[in-house]
Each structure stands twice: as structure tokens, then as C-alpha cells.
């Protein structure tokens, strides 16, 4: 294993060891997605039964939307919470004076984020299949593209949160719970972008998630994957990720100038 890979593994190991010893953290991983799936599953069933089956497509988009949006939420939480764990344990000083490069720290958080998505969302997918006979994999190969785009969206939002923590201290960590939830109305998870008022549609169109969910609805409606939507989602993710990386680099440099790395958990 190269020195760089070992450093990345060191930070991943630190968090795996933490989760191994903390059942509340483990429970928290799957709690949200399973709860959301339960609520929306029964809602979808109610809509389906009430419409005599006419709104089967709508019910399916509810369930697909819930499951895929949890990918973005867990991706973001998995990344930003990993950083916040270091802040809360007053361990950042040791991490930043070790040979671990900032990009290696971020790489470790990406892996932890992907693991958190796997552990958190897979039980919800299984629950959707068991309780509601809903198979997310019916989306076919397009599912992978939609999944990856939401994963990446979670990462750049988390990187923005981490940058804010570097700027404003541990208190800004509260953004970790709120930022992506705040974007939900514009992400077009449960309804098309066209439903939004005209003034808000550009906001939705600037988010990769809106394109992902437009694509999901098209596929669930029986159409082929609208590749233009996927291209928009991927392009926007690249642009937002570049902006988030630039913000992180700027805030990290500024934190070193201000001496904030010493007092970030205070």
C-alpha cells in the first residue's frame, strides 16, 4: 500500500472504529431512510388505492424519489459528519499536523460517505421491496447514472458545509442538517420542475438533482433515459464541485492565515 493510501486508510479506519463502538451512530445511518420509506410507502399506497390504480405511476415516483433523494442526503451527511466528528473530538489539530494532505482527508471522507450511503439506503431499498413490492432496480442501467449524480451532489454540498465550518467554526456544522433539506423544494424530488412558479424554475434547473429526478420520472413513465437531463446533471455537478473545491481551498488557506485550525472546535 502506498504511503498516501495508508494515510487515507488511517482516517477511514478511525471512523470505522468509531462506528463499531457506537450503536446510536449505526442506528442513525439507517433510521432516516427507513423512516422516510415507511411514511412515503404508506402515502403512496393510499394514493394508489384511492385512485383505483390510476395513479400507479405517481406512487412509483414517490418511492423512487424518496430512495434516491436519501442517496444525496446520506452522501452529504456522511462527508460532513466525518469532518465534524474530528471537530467535536478536538482531534483536528493532530490530523492537520500529521502528513495527511488535505486532499487525502477529503478522499477518506468520500469513501466514508459512499459507505454511509450503502449502509443507510440499502435497508430502505429492501424495505420498499418487502413492504410495497417496489423494486428500485426496475430503473435499469439508468439507476447507476442517477445514483452517481446524487452521490456527487451530496459531496459538493458537504464540501461547502466543511468550508463554512472552517470559516465560522463548529457552530456552522448545523448547516449539515439543514442545507440539503432546504434544497428539497427545488430538487423536484416528488413533482416536475414545471410545477414550480416560473421565477423558481431557474433555481431548480441549476441543481443536478432536478435533472436527475426529471430523468427518473421519464424512465418510470416508460420512456428511455433522457440523456440530455443526465448530461445537464453531470455538467452541473462538475461545475458545482469545482466551485466547492475552490471554496474549500480558499477557506483552508484563510483558516491557516487566521489561526482558525487551532480553535475550530471552541
Amino acid at each position: 500500500m502506498s504511503a498516501s493510501a495508508r494515510r487515507i486508510w488511517g482516517l477511514i479506519y478511525r471512523h470505522l472504529a468509531l462506528y463499531r463502538r457506537s450503536w446510536p451512530r449505526l442506528l442513525d445511518l439507517a433510521y432516516g431512510p427507513v423512516l422516510q420509506m415507511t411514511i412515503w410507502g404508506f402515502t403512496a399506497r393510499y394514493v394508489l388505492n384511492g385512485s383505483g390504480g390510476a395513479l400507479a405511476g405517481t406512487a412509483a415516483t414517490f418511492l423512487g424519489g424518496v430512495l434516491l433523494w436519501e442517496v444525496a442526503l446520506h452522501s452529504q451527511m456522511g462527508f460532513s459528519m466525518s469532518f465534524l466528528e474530528e471537530v467535536w473530538s478536538r482531534n483536528l489539530g493532530h490530523v492537520f499536523v500529521s502528513p495527511l494532505r488535505p486532499w487525502e482527508m477529503l478522499a477518506a471522507f468520500l469513501v466514508l460517505s459512499a459507505l454511509r450511503v450503502a449502509v443507510g439506503v440499502v435497508p430502505a431499498i429492501a424495505l420498499a421491496w418487502l413492504l410495497y413490492a417496489y423494486n428500485l432496480f426496475l430503473l435499469g442501467p439508468a439507476l447507476l447514472a442517477l445514483f452517481v449524480n446524487l452521490l456527487v451532489m451530496g459531496w459538493w454540498v458537504a464540501l461547502g458545509v466543511v468550508a463554512m465550518v472552517l470559516r465560522h467554526g463548529a457552530g456552522a456544522g448545523a448547516l449539515s442538517w439543514t442545507v440539503l433539506f432546504g434544497l428539497t423544494p427545488f430538487a423536484a424530488v416528488f413533482y416536475p420542475v414545471a410545477v414550480l412558479p416560473a421565477t423558481l424554475r431557474p433555481v431548480a434547473r441549476a441543481l443536478p438533482a432536478a435533472h436527475v429526478f426529471e430523468g427518473m420520472r421519464a424512465v418510470l413513465g416508460g420512456a428511455t433515459m433522457p440523456w440530455a437531463e443526465l448530461a445537464w446533471a453531470s455538467g452541473l455537478n462538475l461545475a458545482w464541485m469545482a466551485a466547492a473545491v475552490a471554496l474549500f481551498v480558499f477557506e483552508f488557506r484563510t483558516a491557516r492565515i487566521r489561526g482558525a485550525l487551532l480553535v475550530i472546535g471552541e
Binding site: 494515510r7 488511517g10 482516517l11 479506519y13 478511525r14 472504529a17 463502538r21 493532530h94 500529521s98
Partner: peptide, 18 residues
Amino acid sequence: ALPYRLTVAENLRVYGHL
């Protein structure tokens, strides 16, 4: 501080890898 939920061995292992 060192991560307080990790054992002593785990802490040393983390920094050994870093």
C-alpha cells in the same frame, strides 16, 4: 485530544497509519 471513543490501540493504529 485523541478521539475518546476509540481505544488506546485504535488511536495508536490511526496515527501509525497517518
